[in-house]
Amino acid sequence: MDGVRLADRIAYGGGMAARKAGVICDAFRPRDGACPVVAVNRTVRLAVLSVPVSGSARGPAPFGVPYRQLVLDQAYVLPGDYVVGPLGTLLVATNEPPAPVLGVQCNETVSVWRPAGPVLAGVNPYGAILSGGARAILAGFPAALLPGGVSDRSRTGLPDDTKLPGYVGAVAAVAGLAPQVADIVRDARGRQFVVDAVIAYGGIWRLALTESVM
């Protein structure tokens, strides 16, 4: 048996196990910058079993750790797909047969905006970004957003100032719509973040963010 057939048999076995012990979910694949979790983007309905990354079901997953091992027929999902159902919304982070699928639980819905540049020409090449003319890159995307990365001092720099919180986010990648440094991220709770770094991992973007605190 070669590697391709072995991976296929493992995927099939995962689907059988999920149908016995899992729940029915829908898989969605983003097509553009609009909300991906809509009927037109649904690729398949399938059974999914979610367990801690360790693979053991003897105990609960650690608190605050969003990563899950997904047992399913992994031939039907790709990195960057969303799996939605009774488990909540999970972003498929990796799918590398014969290894299991790694999913990330989404806890926010975010939009990514590209600020406009200065509109007035001048001798000095420096110019601040303009949030008023920002255009949407991604809108209504489920994302995993967790504290982490590098925090920063507030701009006033007073001794008793609290630091600006740093976050790490993961969101599905869409061809031709790559986030960039200095883009603005807004979540459903009205918080705003500035993108400090962008790294592509397969079908997802990993974002380093700093919260913008008024």
Rank of each mutant, 00 (worst) to 15 (best):
A143Q: 01
G166F: 09
I10K: 03
A99K: 14
I10Q: 06
A61R: 09
A7T: 10
G22Y: 01
K163E: 14
G133V: 06
V84M: 00
C35W: 00
A18I: 03
F63R: 15
R45I: 05
W205P: 00
A18P: 08
G13Y: 12
A27E: 01
L6G: 05
R42E: 05
F193G: 03
S151H: 12
A182G: 04
Y67E: 14
D8G: 11
A197R: 14
N95D: 12
G117K: 15
G122Y: 08
R68F: 00
V110S: 02
A34Q: 12
K163D: 12
A175G: 11
G148Y: 07
Y12L: 15
V92M: 05
A21Y: 14
F141M: 01
V194M: 13
V123W: 12
D161A: 13
E211T: 09
P125D: 04
L209Q: 03
V112F: 03
D152V: 11
V48N: 00
L49P: 08
G202N: 02
V171D: 06
G103M: 06
N107C: 11
A182M: 15
T94L: 12
V83H: 02
T162C: 11
L120G: 03
L130P: 04
A57R: 15
A18Y: 01
A200I: 13
V181D: 12
A173T: 07
V83G: 01
P142E: 00
P60Y: 11
L209W: 01
V174P: 05
N41E: 04
G148Q: 09
K20L: 14
R29C: 08
R42K: 15
G127I: 05
Y67Q: 15
V171F: 02
G133P: 02
V48A: 03
P142F: 06
A99E: 13
P30I: 04
L90M: 14
A39E: 14
